[in-house]
């Protein structure tokens, strides 16, 4: 057993756990994007940052990759963490403002401005699709290529992959193209309306990153509006409908 402190709470964790796993075990919420329980950790989105250590030597690390250590002091909500997190969300919004997942994060963490040039790309290079394809689906049809600002995800030679089995896993797991946000404001690029709107589904897929090269014909990315939602959501939705009249 390893003893550490998270937000002044004395916690115990198993050897080999990451700080994120320890926090989750104790019900402490740390936002994530590129993390998925069923896939290996990546640590690329930098949302799960926490501050470790104290005093001048404290630093920010991604909790999903940082292993628990005896005596480690972790804080998940310091000023540094919050500012870094907000900037990450702002950067992500500037790349993919149409992603509901990112707009939701913006609402939740109070990001109300995007001060960078909007790129309107549909990929934030979180790598979930790559790991999904390789680890869960054993396909290895897509992967990271190039480096730095030219980094991208694609198939070998940018043509249809011989090993792609059209399973749709990549589409399924992608936080950007799962759900489209219909409400980003033209001026601010921030939506903040998803708490009052119906979850939307994809109505269009022209500029999708679809490695199955079927441009939507496979039907994976087009979904029915969920009929069954929990009671909270239902009340929220009906209230919204009333307002919109």
């Amino acid at each position: 057993m390893i003893n550490l402190k998270i937000n002044n709470l004395e916690v115990k964790a198993e050897e080999g756990w990451t700080v994120l796993e320890a926090a989750k075990f104790y019900g402490l919420e740390i936002p994530t994007l590129c993390y998925n329980e069923g896939l290996s950790v990546y640590g690329g989105c930098r949302l799960c940052l926490v501050e470790i250590g104290e005093g001048p030597k404290s630093k920010l690390v991604s909790s999903c990759t940082y292993p628990v250590e005896e005596g480690l002091v972790v804080r998940t909500g310091t000023k540094r963490v919050i500012e870094a997190r907000k900037m990450m969300i702002e950067l992500m919004l500037s790349i993919a403002p149409n992603s509901k997942a990112i707009q939701d994060l913006a609402s939740k963490f109070g990001v109300t401005q995007v001060r960078f040039k909007i790129r309107n790309e549909e990929c934030i290079l979180c790598g979930l699709c790559v790991r999904m394809c390789a680890e869960q689906m054993d396909g290895r049809a897509i992967g990271f290529q190039n480096r730095g600002y030219k980094r991208k995800i694609s198939t070998p030679f940018d043509i249809k992959s011989e090993v792609c089995r059209l399973c749709g896993g990549c589409m399924y797991i992608c936080p950007v193209c799962q759900l489209k946000c219909q409400g980003p404001d033209a001026d601010t690029t921030v939506c903040n309306a998803c708490l009052t709107m119906d979850p939307t589904c994809l109505d269009y897929y022209d500029e999708l990153q679809c490695w199955m090269y079927d441009a939507g014909r496979c039907g994976t990315c087009v979904r029915e509006t969920p009929e069954k939602s929990d009671s909270k959501e239902q009340t929220r939705n009906s209230k919204a409908k009333e307002k919109n009249v």
Partner: peptide, 22 residues
């Protein structure tokens, strides 16, 4: 130089160097 040499994994480095350059 840095936006080209960044390995590209971390959003903060990859996007950050690009945006600072812009």
């Amino acid at each position: 130089f840095l936006r080209d040499e960044s390995c590209g994994k971390c959003l903060s480095c990859r996007e950050g160097t690009q945006r600072m350059w812009e």
